Amino acid sequence: MNTTNEILVIDLEATCWENERIPIGQNVDIIEIGICKLDLQSKVISQKQSIYVIPERSEINEFCTKLTGITPKLIEEKGIYFEEACEKIIDEYHSENLAWAGFGNFDKEQIFEQCDWLGIEIPFGGEYLNVMEEFRDHFSLHKMIGLKRALEYLKMDFEGNHHSGADDAYNAAKILRKILE
């Protein structure tokens, strides 16, 4: 793994549609970057936050709001553009030098896709750790399981609201911390 003693754990929320049918003329856009830092020595999880992102290629619909709790009004009041969100992550977390993690590969792929679309640098420099795969391998499970089921397996409570980026990132960090014990 990385040589630093910290790893960033992220969880994204993105525009979504019922039955995963993306309407013509729209694309999946990141609307929240949940992020926190896990100190690998002290095992402390810190700097948990939600960075709300203005979707540039799609709109937040009722289904998406029901799932994530993110409304167009919330984005209007607190949202920043994705490029600014990436700069904020670099400034606040010094992310270009740290390994980063997420529960599954969607988050990594979506970051790469959106950075590529905008022609900007990826805000993370270190290796990516798929916590879902690490969990499966660590416990020798035959198949992948979701975030909530992984916590249940560990007899841990889910803290916060599922499909809140910051809460999901925090809970994924708890799982990663347990795996690394």
Rank of each mutant, 00 (worst) to 15 (best):
L118S: 03
Q47E: 10
I45V: 02
S95I: 08
S58P: 09
S46E: 11
S140K: 12
F135W: 08
I70A: 05
K37G: 00
R57G: 08
E127C: 05
L151I: 10
H138R: 14
W117D: 11
H162L: 08
L67C: 03
D91Y: 12
N130S: 14
E92D: 13
A150G: 14
S58E: 04
G125K: 14
F112V: 14
H142K: 15
E76Q: 14
K143D: 15
I145M: 15
I145C: 08
S140G: 03
L118Q: 13
C64A: 06
A101Q: 04
D29I: 03
I75G: 05
S140R: 11
S140M: 09
E92H: 07
F103A: 07
G160T: 06
K37Q: 13
G119M: 02
Q41C: 07
K143A: 13
Q114F: 05
T71S: 15
N130W: 11
G102P: 10
T65C: 06
F158Q: 06
N130T: 12
Q47D: 14
F82V: 01
K155M: 05
Q47I: 00
K155N: 14
L40C: 11
D39P: 03
Q114L: 12
E83H: 08
W117S: 09
L38I: 12
E87V: 08
E92L: 13
G125M: 06
N97D: 12
E76C: 08
S95H: 03
Q110W: 06
H162F: 11
Q41P: 00
N161W: 01
M132R: 13
E152S: 15
I54V: 15
D116R: 14
S42P: 01
K43F: 10
Q110L: 15
D107K: 05
L98Q: 07
D39H: 14
A101H: 09
S50L: 00
K48T: 10
L38A: 10
E76D: 11
F103L: 03
D157E: 15
Y52S: 02
S140A: 10
S50F: 01
G79Q: 02
Q110M: 13
I35L: 04
K43G: 03
I122T: 14
L129V: 15
E76M: 11
F135P: 04
V28H: 09
T71Q: 02
I111Y: 09
Y93D: 02
S95G: 04
I120L: 04
I80Q: 11
H94T: 06
E32M: 07
S42G: 03
S46F: 11
Q47A: 04
E77C: 06
K43V: 02
L141N: 05
N105H: 10
L118C: 03
K48H: 02
P55T: 08
Q41W: 01
L118D: 06
F139R: 01
E83R: 09
S50R: 04
L141D: 09
D157K: 10
I145K: 07
G125A: 10
F139Y: 15
H138S: 14
I90E: 13
C86T: 15
S50A: 13
N61C: 07
M156W: 00
D29F: 01
P123K: 10
Y128G: 08
F135C: 04
I30L: 04
K78C: 08
I75R: 06
E127A: 12
G104P: 09
N161K: 15
S95E: 05
A150T: 07
E56I: 09
G79A: 02
E76W: 03
